[in-house]
């Protein structure tokens, strides 16, 4: 299922907000620091693992989502630290950066870090922070979007301002 511009900008449209969505529909803003590039590449690589296979359009979706998330100083620092930890482990255990690993190795690494069973915590162990800032960050983005909801049969998932029509519709509508 294709993640689209609708998924990327839905919250903005509903609120009439003026938050910039530079690069929406492409790969994001053009002037990015090395650290920012590492975050975006690593998060896209992680999304390719934690999102189901039938989802496409991941790179544009994730980078656009991060545009609004990385504007928060504290959150950006947390994401950056978690991403750095993931890449450190990748270099140590698999001799390459996380984005360069195969999908199977990326999946294994996240589990070896402990992000599958860890509680999500902002200030916790590496496993807990990776769960919060990487895995849950990406799952929050997907499953509160219309496309993520539709994967489950819920076109207006919690967190998405999808209006007041869908709750009235039956499953065949």
């Amino acid at each position: 299922m294709q993640l689209t511009r609708r998924d990327a900008v839905s919250a903005l449209t509903a609120l009439g907000a003026s938050v910039a969505v530079a690069g929406c529909g492409d790969t994001g803003s053009t002037q990015q620091s090395d650290a920012d590039t590492e975050i975006r590449e690593t998060m896209v690589a992680a999304a390719e693992v934690v999102y189901p296979d039938e989802v496409t359009g991941i790179e544009a979706f994730v980078t656009t989502f991060l545009d609004s998330r990385l504007t928060g100083e504290s959150h950006a620092a947390g994401v950056g630290d978690a991403v750095a930890a993931v890449n450190d482990r990748a270099e140590s255990w698999y001799d390459d950066r996380f984005p360069a690993l195969s999908a199977a190795d990326r999946d294994s690494l996240l589990r070896e870090v402990g992000a599958d069973t860890a509680e999500p915590r902002r200030e916790g162990s590496t496993a807990e922070e990776v769960r919060y800032y990487v895995v849950n960050e990406l799952l929050l983005a997907l499953y509160s979007s219309p496309t993520g909801g539709e994967l489950v049969g819920l076109e207006n998932p919690q967190g998405h301002a999808g209006g007041i029509d869908s709750y009235q519709r039956g499953p065949q509508a």
Binding site: P52, D116, V135, Y143, V152
Partner: peptide, 21 residues
């Protein structure tokens, strides 16, 4: 809620989607 379930499991990818469904 599916998004709530997604953030509280030991799974991701196709396994998670299967659980949500």
């Amino acid at each position: 809620s599916p998004v709530g379930m997604a953030l509280t499991g030991d799974d991701w990818g196709d396994d998670l989607l299967g659980r949500l469904r």
